[in-house]
Computed example of a mutant assay.
Amino acid sequence: MDILAMSFCVKSSHSHLSVSLKCQHLIGFEEEEQVSAFMTPVFTLNQSFKLCNLPVSRLHLLCQALRNPCCKIKDLKLYGCLISPASCGALAAVLSTSQWLTDLEFRETKLEASALKLLCEGLKDPNCKLQKLKLCASFLPESSEVVCNYLASVLICNPNLTELDLSENPLGDTGVKYLCEGLRHSNCKVEKLDLSTCYLTDASCMELSSFLQVSQTLKELFVFANTLGDIGVQHLCEGLQHAQGIIESLVLSQCSLSAACCESLAQVLSSIRSLTRLLLINNKIEDLGLKWLCEGLKQPDCQLKDLALWTCHLTGECCQDLCNALYTNEYLRDLDLSDNALGDEGMQVLC
């Protein structure tokens, strides 16, 4: 009944609103049950919902409302919900018919491969207008490779999709390999890609590097909390230096990095004018690594505006290198050195 009431409001919504469902037990009824089993007579007779004693998904009523031509809901968020394959089939129908829905987010909503397959059929429909797809902490470990294959086919078919967030899913290197087959396709127009906490290693970076070299649209890449290591980041840097795109933001926080990768990062800073944001939080960069980064910051083509170096094992010894970079870099606006042992002498140098 709660979903029925909400569906009535959604159906009557003439403005661009957002619908968020945050519940651990969005069960409603089982797949084999009939709508008339729990509907009151007054609602059973409401033909606008097409309730004809057919088996329906848990989200049937909501999806019927979202498909109504008068509904102008722009984004739908499902947090902690129990989503069945039938529900994904109903959502796929929404994606293939709605002219307004542009954002779809699943978070902590476990989806089986069969459910994702149905959803992807809707995403591949020529009429799908979705621009942002977030599937955070939603994959089952045993289905990740299959799911990435489905998503790759979506990226090939749907040029409207500009944001893809797959964070907190156990994709692994094999999953990313399948995903990159779609990312590299000329029809793919993704501008923001989030693969944070996805169990990636340096092998994934080789695949991502090949994607970076051909993408002309990617602006933001998030690979936070993956064990990429120095070799992995060196692969990424090689791809960035040969990129045709306009990368603006690179997030490499908590990626098991050391000073060994900083020379490659410095070359990226000195050669990619579009890069304005670099986050290296919680990596063991140390003073030597920062010395290399400062060499990149001093180059005339470096236009970095935001540099985050929290918990990077820095000491006061690096502060003179920072000063030398600040003397010449006129673009840097945000410099975060939190949780580093710079000490009083280091701060005096910076001041």
Rank of each mutant, 00 (worst) to 15 (best):
A341P: 05
D306Y: 10
L309E: 02
G343T: 09
L337V: 12
N329S: 14
K298N: 01
L309Y: 08
K305P: 00
A341H: 14
L335P: 07
L335C: 09
D306S: 04
C323Q: 14
W310G: 09
W310V: 06
C319G: 05
E317Y: 07
L307F: 03
L314A: 00
L304R: 01
N324K: 11
L314T: 04
T328W: 03
G316M: 07
A325K: 04
Y327S: 11
L297H: 14
Q303T: 09
D344H: 12
Q299D: 14
N324W: 00
T311L: 10
L322F: 03
Q299Y: 08
N340C: 09
D334M: 14
N329L: 09
L335Q: 11
R333F: 01
L309F: 05
N329T: 03
Q299N: 12
L304F: 06
Y331L: 00
A308D: 14
D321E: 06
L342G: 12
C323F: 06
E345S: 13
D301R: 12
L322N: 03
L304A: 01
D321A: 05
C318V: 11
L314I: 02
G343F: 10
Q320C: 00
L326Q: 02
N324V: 01
L326R: 03
D339R: 11
Y327D: 05
K298H: 07
Q320T: 08
C302Q: 05
R333S: 09
L332W: 04
H313L: 13
N340P: 02
C318H: 03
D301A: 04
D334E: 14
K298M: 15
R333Y: 02
